[in-house]
């Protein structure tokens, strides 16, 4: 059985979209809620648990979207910066190794 993956929604404004285009990741954006662009980075089960523990304001939205929400803004900024740096959305293991 495939491992369950839980998205973290990084909301994309124009400035971020330009950065994604520059590293060839603009096509990774999806549209959610009336065209608002979102980039999804994923956590596995263990990573989800660690995120909820390390960042107590975060919440797993089990009812509607099955995503990890309400991470502090600066944490998501760092995740986005790492996506740009690595030119990949597969960043969670390395990102969480710092916590």
């Amino acid at each position: 059985m495939a491992e369950e993956k839980y998205p973290i929604n990084i909301w994309i404004n124009e400035e971020r979209y330009e950065k994604l285009k520059a590293v060839g990741l603009a096509n990774m954006c999806e549209e959610m809620l009336a065209g608002l662009k979102v980039l999804r980075v994923y956590a596995n089960d263990a990573q989800k648990d660690k995120i909820l523990k390390v960042f107590p304001t975060a919440k797993f939205d089990s009812a509607t979207t099955k995503s990890i929400e309400l991470l502090p803004r600066e944490v998501k900024d760092k995740m986005f910066d790492m996506v740009i740096e690595k030119k990949s959305i597969d960043i969670m293991e390395e990102f969480l190794s710092k916590y």
Partner: peptide
């Protein structure tokens, strides 16, 4: 359908990204 989730809306606001006016 794209359902409204209070939690997702809060997440967008928290990120400081202005959502589309339809939302």
């Amino acid at each position: 359908w794209q359902k409204f989730s209070g939690t997702v809306i809060r997440s967008i606001i928290l990120d400081g990204v202005k959502p589309p006016r339809l939302i």
